[in-house]
Amino acid sequence: MSEINFIWYTLLPSLLEGAVITLQVIVISIPAGLIIGILMAVGRIYGNKFISLMCTGYVAFFRGTPLLVQLFILYYGLPSIGIFFSPFMAAVIGFSLCSGAYHSEYLRGAIQSIKIGQMMAARSIGMNRFRAILHIILPQALRRAIPGCSNEIIYLIKYSSLAFMVTCVELTGAAKIIAGRYFKYMEIFLVVGAIYLIVVSIANKFLNGLEKKLRIPGLEMGK
């Protein structure tokens, strides 16, 4: 009986609280990361020398350093120059920046796979570069990048557990606190693992559905 009470009144509420934070973190970080990824990819390919170099540097930094180091800089490092973030904000910003760097690599590949003729045709009917990128290049590139970007989104869901390292108590953090208090690591982390698995499965199903829904004959990967 006390076991059920423990699960019902202690474990579930705090895991639920943590899960809500996790969901908030990923629901903000996924679109923010995608937007950053698009900007970086477009900047690298279509920007002038300076912009292109900046974007390349950005991607090199965020792909080349451990995410944990990035989070520590954001949360513990920046206050020394007067910039303070809440744990939640530090996590969201860190995940968005890092995820953006990876998205931009998938997108860059996708943009470069689109034949130069698409840009020429768009310009030939009077579109300026910006419109051509927005209406012709990106809709095609985004479709081609879906498999890669989906992968990154799945990763993001899992590495969101690192938020705990900057004291943002999300699902993994909540679980760790309770598990430490009651010494029930095995049971609790099996439950936590199952929750991540469910979230990832739902995301996967959604992303696969999206890929199918947006599929256009002639625009498949590698074509």
Partner: peptide, 20 residues
Amino acid sequence: INKARSSIGMVFQDFNLFAH
């Protein structure tokens, strides 16, 4: 030039239709 270009049609060897 964008405006001017819109009044010159261009037809390409490999069509370059907007694939999406």
